[in-house]
Design a protein around this nucleic acid. Structure first.
Lengths: 129, 129
DNA sequence: CAGTATCCAAATCGATACTG
DNA sequence: CAGTATCGATTTGGATACTG
């Protein structure tokens, strides 16, 4: 009989764990705090550059642009230039981006729900050390 | 009447979006590819250093140790030294880490399920540029 | 408003050599 | 086996100044 196909997580040969697999690129695209913050923020209404700059605490214009461009290049974010004067540009999620946003929102929520526990654990570790 | 308390995502003042909020630290802890790969790998059985080194494609000893220590310090991973000769050390998830692993697995799975779409979008973008 | 361009300090990370 | 220590190349990212 053929060996049972194990679940991806049980056996690491699966996919993202394999450097070089295309899914690893996607993981790296997503594994950064600005993407983790921006993508969920883009749900619902489209957002403008300055708006994002204000809402994403601590981000610089450089990183905002860079992250948005990267997300756009990978089909997650759509950029719409209304071609007005003064300029008005809107960013929103593509359907694919919307799908991703559900997953990333879960990460954000986990962070918010558990930061107290993490902080406590860190305190305890520091006390030990 | 009091203004309706908006959902965290609808209004960014919430939490992770606020630089300086403790939950942001948690986000940064998790927003890195090695954590995203290691935490889900630790589900089920405990894993050893060399085992992880092999399973997590592309990671170096340095990054493995560094990531494990960081996760340990924050209460997500438990390190057990069996104190044998030759050394035998096992890493496993704490209950908190197990909780996180469910969220992170979803990210990994999304990457695996959608990398073809992302690749296609990127191709298209390149063709355009 | 919505960016781009540039400089440069700091953080990241792999490779290598070494230890208990 | 399970690390630590160190060096140096690369990357990252903020600040600042400028553009259409």
């Amino acid at each position: 009989m053929p060996s049972k196909k194990s679940s991806v997580v049980a056996d690491a040969a699966g996919d993202v764990w394999n450097a070089g697999c295309p899914s690893r690129r996607v993981l790296e695209l997503v594994a950064n705090k600005w993407a983790l913050l921006i993508v969920p923020l883009l749900r619902g209404k489209p957002r403008r550059n300055n708006e994002l700059l204000r809402k994403v605490g601590g981000i610089s214009q450089k990183m905002l642009t860079q992250t948005l461009r990267e997300l756009e290049q990978n089909g997650l974010v759509l950029r719409e230039d209304l071609r007005t004067v003064p300029p008005h540009v809107e960013y929103r999620l593509s359907p694919l981006g919307l799908s991703l946003s559900r997953t990333l929102m879960a990460v954000d929520r986990w962070a918010e729900a558990n930061h107290a526990r993490i902080d406590a654990a860190q305190q305890a570790a520091r006390a030990r050390a």
